[in-house]
């Protein structure tokens, strides 16, 4: 996923759409929105971004899971097999992004990158609702022209790369100048 923070306004439509799509219980969320502002008045900066499980290529949650409940799916996403999850929460301690939570029904849950929708050829709920077009579903192994154009010449970062988890989400920084 490529998240263009230049346009994100932090409205949280992605969060609500996910909650409905995935029947996330009240009081929980699989994705969330962060508004970060810095600098010193009146020279302030701001970045809004939608965050979720990073579907790391070297995912500590999978490494630490004692029962193989957390695993890599064939498409490279990180998924949870609920019928193997004991709720030991090792994955939650291991995740540098705090992307997981204990579902009230007794298993650890998180963003599935709407696996059920992608299998039907649909985009994820969050991507498909986003009014700003900030969220872009991208296959990094097979990047299309539109994405290449989107990323070209921009400051793009991944979160906590030094954690060594090889996260699959990329953010186009809000610090990009107009027309960069």
């Amino acid at each position: 996923m490529v998240i263009d923070t230049r346009v994100c306004v932090g409205c949280s439509a992605c969060v609500y759409a996910c909650k409905q799509e995935n029947n996330v219980p009240e009081g929980y969320c699989r994705d969330w929105v962060v508004q970060e502002s810095g600098g010193e008045y009146p020279k302030l900066t701001m970045e809004n971004r939608s965050e979720r499980c990073q579907h790391c290529e070297n995912a500590p949650c999978v490494t630490y899971c004692p029962t193989r409940a957390s695993h890599y799916a064939e498409d490279g996403t990180v998924q949870i097999n609920r019928s193997l999850c004991t709720g030991c929460k090792a994955c939650m301690a291991a995740c540098p992004y705090d992307a997981r939570y204990v579902h009230p029904e007794g298993y650890v849950d998180k963003c599935s990158l709407c696996k059920h929708r992608i299998e039907q050829g649909l985009e994820t709920a969050c991507v498909s609702i986003c009014p700003t077009g900030s969220l872009n579903l991208v296959d990094f192994n097979n990047m299309d022209e539109k994405t290449k154009e989107l990323l070209k010449g921009k400051i793009v970062y991944r979160q906590k790369e030094h954690a060594g988890t090889e996260p699959s989400l990329q953010w186009i920084s809000a610090s990009n100048k107009p027309g960069a």
Partner: peptide, 26 residues
Amino acid sequence: MLATAVNEIVSTKINPNVVPHLHIWE
């Protein structure tokens, strides 16, 4: 990412025992 010094960070995240900090083990 933006500078970290005086940043104001607001998140919509609500998950119990994850925010404001991890509290999975009692």
